[in-house]
Nucleic acid binder design. Structure first.
Lengths: 152, 152
DNA sequence: CCCTTTCGTCAGGGTGCCTGTCTTGTGTGG
DNA sequence: CCACACAAGACAGGCACCCTGACGAAAGGG
């Protein structure tokens, strides 16, 4: 039996900026994955985004994916293997290098992009309805300015 | 040997709102953990925040921590055990219930709060310097308005 | 005093990440 | 042209984190 407990009151202390930034992202991500599940992709989880979001149309090497996702190629290879078993990507030989293979989204994999685009549009529409177009533009502009100066 | 690859160009497509929200949070979190490491706490990792951030001063039961962090009590117990071995928390008997134990931050654990507060203040100061006080207030207000309407 | 619920734990499983090592293929310099 | 360093990926092994299931012990209401 599961012992997961219901969430009652998350002790919402003085809302700091970190939480204000994280929550909309978290809620959006949750909705995306709920939608994936509803549309027949219940096995897609967050780490799989580290593969799918970095695939080029013509296919991409595991090493390149690893570099883009900032992880080791071993870890990336494992994610790719998992997604391959689930039918979302396939490995095809790289014609230009017989050591290498190209990871490509299958038709099933491409369905994810369609769904993701829909959800993103939907969420942005909701937020715009809530805040109004002017404030959304403001918010985006401020976030862009903030992001422009970020360096670890 | 590690095969982690350097990150070159993250294919920064049309910056969408999700990335704009996530990046400042991610960069801040990275800095926090780098600072933990520099100050003698290299073993503290992100999931440990799910324990430390929910501890009350007098101690808190594992079940309550699990509820607050939205995970099973088994998983929470594991995190607590790990932090206990590292010396950041201790389990003491709950005087009001002989089944229960209270998880409490040790002096070493409380050092983390000091560091965290410093880093947060530091980051907010940097952002304020970059955007100016007025825009920071605007940003915070917009994020609060956005967060106020979030529900799943 | 049962009976149910709750607290914490043990047991077992899967995913996601790591380091280290190896094979195979590439390409470069002598 | 060939030896050799190097790049791509696979294989092995390990740990952290999260889950489900099941349990003994204590609490607490009828």
């Amino acid at each position: 039996m599961s012992t997961r407990l219901p969430h009652t009151s998350a002790r919402t202390r003085p809302e700091n900026l970190a939480i204000l930034l994280r929550e909309p992202f978290r809620v959006g991500t949750e909705r995306l994955h709920r939608r994936f599940a509803e549309r027949g992709h219940p096995d897609i989880r967050a780490p799989h985004g580290n593969v799918m979001q970095f695939l080029d149309d013509g296919g991409t090497r595991v090493s390149v994916l690893a570099e883009r996702a900032q992880m080791t190629k071993q870890s990336m290879a494992e994610l790719v293997t998992h997604l391959e078993r689930l039918g979302y990507v396939e490995r095809v030989p790289d014609p230009s290098d017989r050591r290498a293979k190209l990871v490509r989204a299958t038709p099933r994999g491409r369905e994810l992009y369609v769904i993701a685009r829909e959800v993103v549009a939907e969420i942005e529409a909701e937020w715009t309805q809530r805040l109004g177009k002017a404030k959304m533009r403001q918010l985006r502009a401020l976030l862009e300015e903030l992001n422009a100066g970020l360096e670890p």
